[in-house]
């Protein structure tokens, strides 16, 4: 086949590509932040909560982790309105992505909590620390250090995972790329360009996380 690569038509749309990349990062950051809070609450509930709460969290984690994100997006956007909860595309995307990440975060954080040797908790008890102090100083902070690598990896997976939210009309990098593909019909060139953009985003985030871990934990994560 004779195919002549023409990147010109794509670079004329660089504004849109930048917009898409920014939207991707916004969706990733917002949903990761909310998902982390969900994960933290869930992990605490699952480790220290009453049995019924543990069960509920376990069911949530299993359902979300064993079904595709796409199906979850459809549910939030198309089915919740039938129950009277109407969210915009962006809100629905962020909610679904948050719930998705939350389930993984519960498991990661729970593993972190369990990585604390029981002896330390007993030691803290014998020092007379309150329940709240123990949770904070003996469990949460050391566990954070232990789970940091897994959480940041999950953030990267979330970044790549946002590429499917265009199914409910939310705009991000892949959606912009698909729009441009339909306008310019330069599919090959566009996919090469957005592969590079995703690559740069992921690399930049990895680098940032490594720097943050050096500052936070003074420890090579």
């Amino acid at each position: 086949m004779n195919y002549v690569f023409q990147f010109g038509p794509i670079f004329r749309h660089s504004d849109e590509l930048i917009y898409g990349a920014v939207r991707t990062m916004e969706l990733t950051a917002a949903s990761s932040a909310i998902g982390f809070v969900i994960g933290l609450a869930g992990a605490l509930a699952r480790s220290f909560g009453p049995i019924w709460l543990k069960r509920i969290v376990a069911v949530y984690v299993e359902i979300i982790r064993n079904t595709p994100l796409l199906v979850q997006l459809y549910f939030v956007f198309f089915s919740l309105p039938l129950m009277g909860v109407k969210l915009s595309s962006d809100q629905a995307a962020i909610l679904a992505l948050s719930i998705h990440l939350g389930a993984y975060a519960v498991e990661i954080l729970r593993a972190g909590i369990q990585s604390i040797p029981g002896g330390q908790i007993e030691a803290a008890k014998s020092l007379g620390l309150s329940r709240r102090q123990i949770i904070r100083h003996v469990i949460v902070v050391p566990a954070a250090r232990a789970v940091y690598p897994a959480l940041t990896s999950q953030f990267i997976l979330q970044l790549l995972g946002t590429s499917i939210v265009s199914a409910i009309a939310a705009e991000e990098l892949t959606a912009v790329a698909n729009n441009l593909a339909m306008q310019t019909f330069r599919n090959f060139e566009i996919y090469i360009v957005i592969a590079i953009i995703y690559f740069i985003l992921v690399r930049a985030c990895s680098l940032l996380f490594r720097l943050v871990s050096l500052v936070l934990f003074r420890w090579k994560a």
Partner: peptide
């Protein structure tokens, strides 16, 4: 403008009031 991937999705969005 909300862009969906297929006709079924827009129709469903109409029926859901989205």
């Amino acid at each position: 403008i909300l862009r969906f991937d297929d006709y079924a999705s827009i129709s469903q969005a109409m029926l859901s009031g989205q």
